[in-house]
């Protein structure tokens, strides 16, 4: 495992920790999309089904378990926690996730390495992860409500994607026969989506800044 891959995993982990800390400290999930969080839970569950079939390393097992359990923990807070659930922007968070899930599933049936149950689900998770941030992006555009911790969460997610791309470049030049076109294509698209996210973040931040100026 190279330094980019490890740093990418750590920033991904940090993004989740920041999100959970924000929810616990402020007892609020305002500005967060439950739909994006649910898509991430689907991504993790369908990708990490291989926990039952293949063992890669203890590191992989532990990280997979952390990602699955933390995503369900976030969903539990947003749906079920007595105080936090009341702060969820239900009326604004209306993105139709079927428009993402169905095309991703169709695509994974058509473009995959092998037409088997686990392989199709794994491919589906790769495609879905690339677009899972979209409901969050739409919510952000609608509410213009973004606090420091939410922006840190987005920054860390973007950094995780950028580090994974560096990891692919590194592996391509250092390992023989290392090539994974499905992951590279979706991953590049996903990172591009984060650029968009940052653009809207700066836009809303500027807007808030102007609005808060004393008249």
């Amino acid at each position: 495992m190279n330094i980019f891959r490890f740093a990418g995993d750590m920033t991904h982990l940090c993004s989740i920790i920041v999100l959970l800390l924000k929810i616990q400290a402020t007892k609020s999930c305002a500005g967060l999309s439950l739909r994006t969080q649910e898509l991430y839970a689907i991504v993790f569950v369908s990708r990490y089904l291989d926990l039952f079939f293949t063992f890669i390393s203890m590191y992989n097992v532990i990280m997979k378990l952390i990602f699955i359990s933390s995503s369900f923990c976030i969903i539990w807070y947003m749906r079920c926690h007595r105080i936090v659930a009341q702060t969820y922007d239900r009326e604004q968070d209306t993105f139709r996730v079927a428009f993402l899930v169905v095309p991703c599933f169709m695509l994974s049936l058509m473009i995959n390495h092998e037409f088997s149950f686990t392989e199709v689900l794994w491919t589906f998770s790769i495609y879905l992860e690339a677009v899972a941030i979209l409901p969050q992006l739409v919510l952000l555009q609608r509410t213009f409500n973004i606090d420091t911790l939410t922006s840190n969460y987005i920054f860390l997610l973007g950094a995780y994607r950028a580090l994974y791309m560096l990891n692919w470049i590194y592996r391509y030049f250092t390992e023989r026969d290392y090539s994974q076109w499905i992951v590279w294509t979706s991953g590049t698209l996903q990172t591009a989506t984060y650029c968009d996210f940052f653009y809207y973040y700066i836009l809303s931040w500027r807007k808030n800044e102007r609005l808060s100026l004393p008249s």
Partner: peptide, 10 residues
Amino acid sequence: ASEPTVKDEL
């Protein structure tokens, strides 16, 4: 479809 799949990434 013949390319090996790398599943050691998260």
